[in-house]
């Protein structure tokens, strides 16, 4: 009965959409990197850097759209760093990713501490406000659940078809997919594999950073230490769960966001019987379960994790 109450409340569905927003951006970002053959474990740090830089832009008097672009630029720069290690030099994608996560998050914390030495949680800013879609938002239930969100949340849902179009319907997307499946074939077409992979990692990292920024300038209104809290790793699991397809990635992100929103509400109802830590564990445990479920038929991009050096056999 309690569960049903949660599921039929519009606020639950609204929360699901809201929580899904950073997951959608970051999962798509990771998906693009992996589709081009590069596992980007810098995701956790890049999201932290995006969250910090988006917040910083607004805190310094910038506008919200500028903040999104600034976060994306920071993300793309970190992506370029990742790509110059893993793509140009062909170094270990695992170690580089972990290194970039450590570097990007500690640099973000350092910068916050430098600018605001006294405060433990940086001051609040004015984030994106909810925009009611005309007419649709006055629908009962659906209006509150789907049509009263921030512009960045709507954008997240718009980005999915755009990425799908780019990936499956443009020569550029085709080049990216071949870079992750059979880079030698791409080279044979006269296309520079290194450049395609580098651009893919930069684009993907920019999306991850926007995902991080959406936490500080859309979902919340301040930057907290440790606020990414494993969301990046969950997105890496979501990409596997989605079998590297953008549509399924959206579905996966929504599923997990729904679970998260559900877990928070169950905590309030069942918190007396079950300790809250077990609810907080759910997203991580289910990420692992999701990977196990799809493991048998997972179709990894064939060249994932394999560095490409011109003239060398794979």
């Amino acid at each position: 009965m309690d569960i049903l109450d949660i599921l039929i409340s519009a606020s639950f569905w609204a929360a699901t959409i809201r929580i899904a927003c950073p997951l959608i951006f970051a999962t798509l970002g990771e998906l693009i990197c992996e589709r081009a053959g590069v596992l980007n474990l810098g995701i956790e740090g890049i999201m932290t850097a995006g969250a910090m830089s988006g917040w910083l832009w607004v805190y310094n008097g910038g506008d919200l759209i500028g903040a999104v672009l600034f976060a994306a630029a920071v993300g793309a720069m970190l992506g370029l760093l990742h790509a110059s290690f893993t793509v140009s030099l062909g170094l270990s994608q695992h170690v580089t990713g972990i290194g970039i996560t450590l570097l990007a998050s500690s640099l973000s914390y350092f910068i916050i501490k430098m600018l605001l030495p006294e405060s433990t949680s940086p001051p609040k800013i004015v984030p994106f406000q909810n925009i009611d879609v005309p007419i649709l938002s006055s629908l009962p239930f659906l209006g509150e659940a789907l049509f009263s969100h921030t512009p960045l949340t709507y954008t997240a849902f718009l980005v999915v078809p755009i990425i799908m179009y780019v990936l499956y319907r443009t020569p550029w997307g085709l080049a990216m997919r071949i870079a992750g499946e059979n880079p030698v074939a791409l080279e044979a077409q006269g296309i520079d594999v290194i450049r395609v992979r580098t651009l893919a990692v930069m684009l993907g990292s920019a999306l991850m950073a926007i995902g991080g920024a959406s936490l500080t300038i859309s979902a919340f209104d301040a930057f907290y230490f440790g606020m990414i809290n494993g969301r990046g790793w969950i997105c890496v699991a979501l990409v596997i769960f989605a079998s590297w397809r953008p549509g399924k990635a959206l579905l996966g992100a929504l599923l997990f966001a729904g679970l998260d929103a559900f877990q928070v509400r169950m905590q309030q109802q069942a918190g007396a019987y079950i300790p809250y830590q077990f609810f907080l564990m759910l997203p991580y445990v289910l990420s692992i379960v999701a990977m196990i479920i799809v493991a048998r038929r997972a179709e990894y991009p064939k060249a994932l994790l394999k560095p490409y050096r011109r003239g060398e056999r794979l």
Partner: peptide, 18 residues
């Protein structure tokens, strides 16, 4: 099942800490 150990070990960190 050839599930990537990087992701599972990372996610288990959070589970164990909780």
């Amino acid at each position: 099942l050839s599930v990537d150990e990087v992701v599972t070990t990372l996610l288990l960190n959070f589970v164990i800490l909780l």
